[in-house]
């Protein structure tokens, strides 16, 4: 990730010199700190809010219900998470939030799930599979898209639902195949949190 960020910065500078967008670049640079601050506050607030909600959901048994519903799916994708544990509950809630298209809830719950997975020393493969569930964005009703298409005057804004589901499923399948190929039967734990990694 560190190397990638350096490459992105270098490419941006080179690109702006070639394209003659130095003015936009300098404006964007001073603006980006402000934008990030805004993003940080929003993210922190939504993480706090949904972590609080998840704790309530766990206390009243809702998490266990969702867990049972998605267990058959998750057991195959992530065989090494312990049943009934904190990680399993959060991973299930994250999957449910993704399916319902609740992006604002899915991200903070997903972050909490990553932390729980690492506390339970999940394997690297499990982390990659979990990440994929979030980046492939399988959702039942892409609400934002339908709203935007309606606004643009589409004749039938909701007719993309089925193609979107098919495409997400295929993309997820392709990603999962690559996870299985790349990680094989790897079972070693990641030992994160106990051993902070330095940024290269």
């Amino acid at each position: 990730m560190g190397t990638l960020i350096a490459v992105m910065f270098a490419a941006a500078i080179a690109g702006s010199l070639i394209l003659g967008t130095e003015n936009e670049m300098s404006a964007a640079f001073s603006q980006s700190a402000l934008d990030t601050a805004e993003l940080a506050v929003t993210l922190a607030a939504s993480m706090a809010f949904w972590s609080g909600m998840m704790r309530l959901a766990k206390k009243c048994g809702l998490v266990d219900t969702v867990c049972r519903a998605v267990r058959p799916l998750l057991r195959r994708l992530m065989p090494d998470i312990s049943p009934g544990g904190e990680a399993q509950g959060l991973v299930s809630m994250n999957a449910a939030a993704n399916l319902l298209g609740l992006g604002n809830a899915a991200a903070p719950i997903g972050i909490a799930a990553m932390r729980a997975l690492c506390r339970e020393e999940a394997s690297r493969r499990t982390l990659a599979a979990f990440l994929l569930l979030n980046t492939a964005s399988v959702q039942l009703i892409p609400m934002t898209l339908i709203t935007l298409r309606t606004k643009a005057g589409s004749a039938s804004p909701a007719d993309i639902v089925l193609p979107v589901i098919c495409c997400s499923a295929l993309a997820l399948a392709a990603g999962l195949i690559s996870v299985f190929l790349l990680y094989g039967g790897e079972g070693c734990s990641c030992h994160c949190l106990q051993r902070p990694q330095s940024v290269r």
């Binding site: 941006a12 690109g15 670049m25 404006a27 964007a28 980006s32």
Partner: peptide, 8 residues
């Protein structure tokens, strides 16, 4: 942001 706004 840099990569996007520079037009690269």
């Amino acid at each position: 942001t840099m990569l996007y706004r520079s037009g690269t």
